[in-house]
């Protein structure tokens, strides 16, 4: 399963990783929005599991979670969305991203099996740091589902090897100490951090938090293996609701186009 993920980081350009919240604005709308991400040129899809208490998220994703839960989105719905996505897009990696409680409430084995069953390639759990890895990581790895680790500006050289132990898929560099959807970090600090991380791992390094414009995406694409965009897409869904898909596609295409030429310009 992880093969799908490793082969989606092209050698000659950065991968575009896009995030949307599952079930926003309703479970019925997510399929079309996911298709729009792929059509727009996303290489990897992160599907956010809404949570009542998204402590690491800014207002845009908080509101998306509220919209989704208010529409009645359940964990079963989310795995159905994943399964249907996998049928339509056999080659595009799908990553579930969310918080510990919805992922572990039925037990980590249940969750790992559901991921395999639905064709989910990897999981990012925001509030399970490496110290608590056994709560989820063992079960996922046993089923060959990648456990994607986060590194942040507060991750120092001493801690990095710990984070990298048992990491798979790619390494997600959260470029700002803060919540999602706020300012982007300075390019110089991103370059420095990516260099530091790449010295410690062979995994691709994707950079996210605060990326909004094609120019920002291109800047990151010049130095990192992947660019992650989340809140900006979630805001488009927030603005256009049920009619969001074409707007999402156009926006993602603008990012994808910029990334494709970034290393030539």
């Amino acid at each position: 399963m992880t093969d799908r993920l490793s082969s989606s980081f092209p050698a000659d350009r950065a991968a575009l990783v896009t995030f949307v919240t599952a079930g926003d604005p309703t479970p019925a709308d997510t399929g079309a929005i996911l298709d729009a991400l792929v059509e727009g040129g996303a290489d990897i899809i992160e599907l956010g599991m809404p949570f009542t208490d998204p402590m690491a998220d800014g207002p845009s994703i908080q509101e998306a979670d509220i919209r989704s839960l208010a529409a009645g989105t359940t964990t079963a719905n989310i795995f159905n969305m994943a399964r249907e996505f996998r049928q339509r897009h056999p080659d595009t990696p799908l990553v579930l991203m969310g918080y510990a409680n919805p992922m572990t409430i039925r037990g980590s084995e249940w969750f790992a099996n559901a991921c395999v069953d639905a064709g989910v390639d990897a999981v990012i759990c925001v509030d399970i740091p490496v110290e608590e890895d056994e709560s989820l990581g063992d079960a996922l790895r046993a089923k060959d589902v990648a456990v994607i680790r986060l590194a942040t500006p507060t991750t120092d050289a001493e801690r990095l090897p710990q984070i990298l132990s048992n990491a798979s898929g790619f390494l997600y560099y959260v470029s700002v100490a803060g919540i999602t959807g706020q300012q982007q970090a300075a390019q110089a600090s991103i370059e420095e951090a990516v260099a530091r991380l790449k010295a410690g791992t062979d995994l691709p390094v994707a950079v996210g938090f605060g990326v909004r414009t094609p120019e920002q995406a291109a800047d990151i694409a010049r130095v990192a293996d992947g660019v992650v965009v989340g809140s900006a897409i979630v805001e488009i869904v927030g603005e256009y609701g049920k009619d969001a898909a074409p707007h999402v596609r156009d926006y993602v295409k603008s990012l994808s186009d910029a990334i494709r030429v970034a290393r030539h310009g």
């Binding site: 690491a56 510990a100 942040t152 500006p153 507060t154 801690r159």
Partner: peptide, 20 residues
């Protein structure tokens, strides 16, 4: 020493907060 009270407790925080 990991902050666990039996199966409870622990350190379930975002990576940014872990070093802190």
């Amino acid at each position: 020493d990991r902050g666990h009270f039996g199966e409870f407790g622990g350190r379930y925080v975002a990576e940014t907060l872990m070093p802190l």
